[in-house]
Design a protein around this nucleic acid. Sequence first.
RNA 1: GCCGAUAUAGUUUAGUGGUAAAACAGAUCCUUGGUAAGGAUCAGCGGACAGUUCAAUUCUGUCUUUCGGCACCA
Length: 584
Amino acid sequence: MINIKEDEKLSVLNHSCAHLLAQAVKHLYPVAKFWVGPVIEEGFYYDIDLGDTVIKEEDLEKIEKEMKKISKDGKRIVREELTKEQALEMFHDDPYKLDLIRRMDENEVTISAYRQGDFVDLCRGPHVETVKEIKYFKLLKVSGAYWKGDANNKMLQRIYGICFENEEDLNNHLKALEEAKERDHRKLGKDLELFMSDDLVGRGLPMFLPNGYIVWQELENYIKEKERKLGYLHVMTPCVGNVELYKKSGHWDHYKENMFPAMEVDGESFVLRPMNCPHHMMIYASKLHSYKDLPIRIGEIAHDFRYEASGAVKGIERGRHFCQNDAHLFVTKEQIKSEFKNVVDLIFDVYKDFNITNYRCVLSLRDPLDKEKYHPDDEMWNQAENELRQVLNELGIEYTEEIGEAAFYGPKLDVNVRPAVGNEYTLSTCQLDFCLPMKFDLKYIDKNGEKQTPVVLHRAILGSLDRFMAYILEETKGALPAWLSPVQVSVLPVSPEHQGDYAKVISDFLDEEGIRVKLDDRSEKLGYRLREAQTSKIPFMLILGDKEKENNTISYRRYGKEETTTVSKEEFLTLLKDEIKNKK
RNA sequence: GCCGAUAUAGUUUAGUGGUAAAACAGAUCCUUGGUAAGGAUCAGCGGACAGUUCAAUUCUGUCUUUCGGCACCA
């Protein structure tokens, strides 16, 4: 999909369209006060205060009509440069614009406004020459948005739209939006019977069906095997913990509002755990460690529960229960860089296996001014942040730095991706932590026989298996590679009556070899059964007729391909196993 | 949590102040058989709770779900 923000011409056009939108809104709703109307990757929006008037989706058509009318009038868009005083006077009845103007420094910026007919808006520009140029646009949605992005502020109404230079581009974009919906993991999950949810079980608590659980298990086995080879030790710990544990870790202070409330039993309080760090800390603390044992890498596919805001839950991408591909690495200060590097290498090794190329690395740092959220130890933070920065630079990884995005206990590297529908999210993460080891008084004995505090790296490669599965589904449009497919081969006798026995032999042969095979010998037409295999996105279809039966061969066809290849069953097995092994 | 929308069969949708329709999926039977839809018959539906009404799936309210955003996101 086109990124409007990256195209200079389209940016100007879209921003001009935002002004056109504001003008139309002002015509239809004279009470309207305007905040800002920036260009975004997906077009533009305008945040508007309409008092008690509510713009509904059905009103968008009306607004579009007004926009088209204004556009036809073809007024010129004229820039006016203003002194701060003039600007304050010009927008004296719009508190939002006044807020903007008051914060401007005349000596640093030229304050300007753009006028088109009866409408004038504070704006740095540039804009197109006349409103006539703004022709091919569409208002997409309307929603609430907090003023200045702060939930404590008033909620304004935001109208989203997009504009192009010609009708074809606009239609293509609208078509792409429709297509994105088709690969939304929630739709695929339903169509392919991967997971479900039920009101009675509860919101944000998806359940994996047999097909989905196969994919899930394959992911689990895959990552555990990778980790095992890298010296990780896997553990299993309970999903519930004493509240005291979380008070000790600091999560109770910093994370309570995202946890299910405590359960009081016999004078004790327990919580469903939102993460596994404290459990793993206790495992480390359960015995004395030598420097020779470090790094110690404790991994777990761990069930976690977070009370996500009701508006935040989304399929298996963000649920209130999920399974983290979690691990905690206990290392000496000297090992931080090499272990961090190992984690980064693992992340990109995995991405290579899954063909993930559309990601964005973010180095999340603390906001030094936020003393409440962040553990106040400047030296610790500076060291931690510098070490991560150094490794990323050494590895030549492109990243951006974001202030105030760090965890309360330390800085982190996040690897973010964008789903088919919705906002970017974090897939993988690696976090450096000097804080928890101190809180739990973790120790190891160094060369000189003295006690030292280790450093902890928290890391999740697949993030959560659930979220990772959502991403892979959207990337593959549900046509999973053979190694992940719930059913790998569909065996189709042309006529079950005549080749059914042969199909059974082939099916058993593959089944014996550990292939997930489905024999479809229902007395339906071949075309019908073939179609079903197609819609279930099964990677291989075997067609067995008299020819194959006589020659003791099989004919296979790949998902999405037209051609059929005839080989012996052993040849097919070799090909299939090779494909599964290489995760193609 | 906030703003807006939404809820009808397993799925996707239609329709209505007088108890509901279609397609696909399912079952049975017939038919057929080489690369995406043969036929017949059958079975299956109103999120929950209130209110208005002679009568509510339809109108109203509350809650819940889901969806689009915002905020949140270790």
